[in-house]
Simulated scan of single mutants.
Amino acid sequence: MGWLAVGDAYEVALIEGRITARAASGRSAGRQLKSLPKALREHPEVDRLRRFAEWLDRHAAACVAQVDIWMVSSLPVPTGLLARVWPDEAWQTALRDLAVVGDDPDEVGFLRDATDSGELRVVNLDGETVRLSPRTVTLPHPVLLPELDDLREFAAELGVVQKVEQIHRATWRRPADLAERGEKATDVTEFAGGRYTSRFGLAARATSLGYRVSGGYATCRVRDAGRIAEAAVWIGEPYWDGEVTTGGLTWHDQDGRSLPLREVGPVAWSEGMRMAAALHAGRQVEEGNDA
Rank of each mutant, 00 (worst) to 15 (best):
Y239P: 01
G226K: 04
T245Q: 10
I235A: 02
G215I: 04
D224L: 00
G247Y: 07
V222K: 14
D241V: 10
D241N: 15
T219F: 03
P238Y: 02
V233Q: 08
V213C: 03
E230G: 02
G247L: 06
Y211D: 10
A232T: 06
A231H: 06
T245D: 10
I228N: 09
A232D: 03
R227F: 08
T245A: 13
T246V: 01
P238H: 01
T245E: 12
I228M: 11
G215N: 03
A218V: 11
D241P: 05
G226C: 04
R221C: 13
G248I: 03
Y239Q: 05
V213F: 01
P238Q: 02
E237P: 01
G248W: 08
A225T: 11
G215D: 09
Y211V: 10
Y239K: 09
P238L: 01
Y239E: 01
R227I: 14
D241H: 12
R221V: 15
Y211L: 06
G215L: 03
E243R: 12
G247S: 07
A232Y: 04
A231N: 07
I235F: 07
W234N: 07
G226A: 07
V213A: 01
A225V: 12
A232R: 15
R227P: 07
D224E: 07
Y217M: 06
T246N: 11
G242A: 13
T219L: 13
S214K: 07
A229H: 09
W240L: 06
W240D: 08
D224S: 03
I228A: 08
E237V: 05
W240A: 08
A232I: 02
I228Y: 10
A218Y: 07
E243L: 08
T219H: 05
